[in-house]
Simulated scan of single mutants.
Amino acid sequence: MSKESFHQLVAGLTTEIAGRPLDTELDTWLNAHHGAGTASFDSLKQACIEGVAEGWLCEREGGGIRYGRVFKAEDALHRFSVDVVDMRDIAGPHHSHPNGEIDLIMPLEGDATFDGRPAGWCVYPPGSAHFPTVGAGRALVLYLLPEGQIQFTR
């Protein structure tokens, strides 16, 4: 999986969600159409696993978390940035989402959850905040951030 192929894969998804409110309706829709067990989920998960193995995903490490911004917000991605983290039984730094956040939870070991959610999608509305937490194993989490906006708490 090349970085360019990954970009195309994510762009196909962002085409479907562009302009939609980040809310529970989008959460439900994503899990119904692109959730665990679907071809699109499997493709994204495999692409992330390959990207980590090839070294162009999660190329940084800090505080026990591997992470990295793969793509900045751009028109081809409908103004979403793309980040991927690799976490095992850990809480990350507290942050807020001025424009919301869309997360794809991809367990790798155990029955890993992200903020208590199993494999699939989790949508946070604008203005929400959390300590991103992976429990019960290891997971990759793909983050889509409108306009790349995230604010870490000091």
Rank of each mutant, 00 (worst) to 15 (best):
H97A: 13
V134Y: 02
P93G: 12
L57A: 13
A73S: 12
C58S: 04
P126E: 11
I105H: 06
T113Y: 00
I105D: 09
Y67D: 12
D115S: 07
K72G: 05
P118H: 06
D86H: 11
G55Y: 12
S81Y: 04
P126T: 06
L144R: 09
M87H: 03
W121K: 06
D86E: 13
A136Q: 15
D111L: 06
P126C: 11
D111S: 14
G110M: 01
E54W: 09
D89R: 05
F114P: 07
E74G: 03
R69H: 00
R60D: 09
L145H: 04
G127Q: 15
P132V: 01
A129K: 01
P107G: 06
T133M: 04
F131W: 06
T113M: 01
D75W: 05
I65K: 11
G51H: 07
G116A: 07
P132E: 01
V52I: 12
I65Y: 10
S128H: 07
D86Q: 10
H97I: 12
A53R: 15
L145V: 06
G92I: 08
A139N: 08
L104E: 04
R60N: 12
E74F: 00
S128P: 07
D103N: 11
D86N: 11
F114N: 09
I90F: 01
F71I: 03
R79L: 13
P93I: 13
R79T: 07
H97F: 15
S128G: 13
C58V: 03
A73D: 14
D75P: 04
I102V: 15
T113I: 00
E101V: 10
G63A: 00
E54H: 13
W121A: 11
I102Y: 10
V123A: 10
N99K: 11
R69V: 07
I105L: 08
M87T: 07
D115W: 01
E61T: 09
H94M: 00
M106C: 11
L144Q: 09
P118V: 10
L108R: 14
G55F: 03
G55P: 12
P107E: 06
V141I: 14
P118A: 11
I105F: 04
R66T: 04
Y124I: 03
